[in-house]
Amino acid sequence: MTATADVWLPLPAEEIEGLPEGPRYRFWDGEPDFPADPADCAYYVVPYLRGSEVAVRPLPEMTSVRVVQTLSAGIDHVEPGIGLLPPGVRLCNARGVHEASTAELALTLVLASLRGVPDFVRAQDKGEWRGGFRPALADRTVLILGYGSIGSAVEDRLEPFELARIVRVARSARTTARGPVHPITDLPALLPDADVVVLTTPLTDATRGLVDGGFLARMKDGALLVNVARGPVVDTDALLAEVGSGRLTAALDVTDPEPLPPEHPLWRAPGVLISPHVGGPTSAFLPRAKRLLADQLTRFVRREPLRNVILTTGTADDRAL
């Protein structure tokens, strides 16, 4: 960290307790004008929920940047700008910030969909009393696709619900204290037994369009698909065909396209519950984000290892994206 190095923050520095002394903190949350010369920025914290165009815009001029820090779990919104960065730049995500909120929403979507809460709300608007039997979560099999920190947090919240089984699936096989994590190549054999499939996988070239017609066809009749990952993980047209027939239902916090246009058929598709990408932005976000930034910047100033390093530019990990 040189004496002239800047740190760009999407929050005012005075609102973040524990920031180290030394850097010049610049507030930038995606406004048209930059707060200072991007060439002086050593640590860039990407504005939260401002989209890829904003996230990438200063990168070509950040010739001295050493760290790019997202406040999201996913990094897909900054990937288009990675090739613009000099070698040796560390890209860090916000692991530890969003797990609780996203897992809460995943559970909310599962329960609301199974128990018919959207129908109750519509009936309440009309003053109608609509009873009847609804599916329970108890005794069901839930498959979690993308067993990272968010997938694990989803399992934390599912455990008290007396499930028949939780199936964990990730890119490669491994063993955890809770049981095995299956490789993604096992999906064809696992999907037919799942009553609920929860998507928590990051968006990569390997997962884009992963939930296609073939994937959905392997899901059992009456199964529920829950997406709290990224919209393009799911083939929207294929999903529309399945929910339109009534064979599957879906609860989606993310969609493709996003935001979903008012005329899009997903809004009116039977058995579909949509929330507007609200898995992360809750009251839990700011305290956790501030703690992460204070810790990361303290590590940076002290030249200690950073947390949550996803890749370093100019390396094999960078080229594999």
Rank of each mutant, 00 (worst) to 15 (best):
A36D: 15
D37W: 01
P38I: 01
P38E: 00
P38L: 01
P38K: 01
A39V: 02
A39D: 05
A39I: 03
A39R: 10
D40G: 07
D40I: 00
A42S: 09
A42V: 01
A42K: 02
A42F: 00
Y43R: 02
Y43E: 01
Y44F: 15
Y44L: 03
Y44M: 02
Y44N: 02
V45N: 11
V45E: 12
V45T: 15
V45A: 13
V45K: 14
V46H: 04
V46L: 03
V46P: 01
P47G: 05
P47H: 06
P47C: 05
Y48V: 04
Y48A: 00
L49T: 00
L49E: 05
L49H: 01
R50L: 12
R50V: 12
R50I: 09
R50T: 15
G51L: 07
G51Y: 05
G51N: 04
G51M: 10
S52E: 12
S52L: 03
S52A: 13
S52T: 12
E53V: 08
V54Q: 06
V54G: 04
V54D: 04
A55Y: 14
A55D: 08
A55E: 11
A55L: 12
A55P: 11
V56M: 05
P58T: 06
P58V: 07
P58Q: 05
L59T: 12
L59R: 14
P60G: 06
P60M: 09
M62W: 10
M62S: 10
M62E: 12
M62N: 10
T63Y: 09
T63W: 11
T63R: 15
S64F: 04
S64T: 12
S64I: 06
S64R: 15
S64Q: 14
V65W: 10
V65Q: 10
V65M: 11
V65Y: 09
V65C: 15
R66G: 04
R66L: 04
R66K: 13
R66P: 00
V67H: 10
V67M: 08
V68R: 14
V68K: 14
V68T: 11
V68E: 12
Q69H: 07
Q69R: 09
Q69T: 07
T70R: 06
T70E: 03
T70F: 03
T70V: 14
T70H: 06
T70N: 05
L71Q: 11
L71K: 08
L71G: 05
S72K: 06
S72P: 03
S72G: 14
S72D: 07
S72Y: 05
A73G: 13
A73D: 03
A73Y: 08
G74S: 13
G74E: 14
I75M: 08
D76G: 02
D76A: 13
D76W: 06
D76Q: 14
H77W: 04
H77L: 12
V78C: 06
E79V: 15
P80I: 12
P80W: 13
P80T: 11
G81D: 08
G81L: 10
G81R: 11
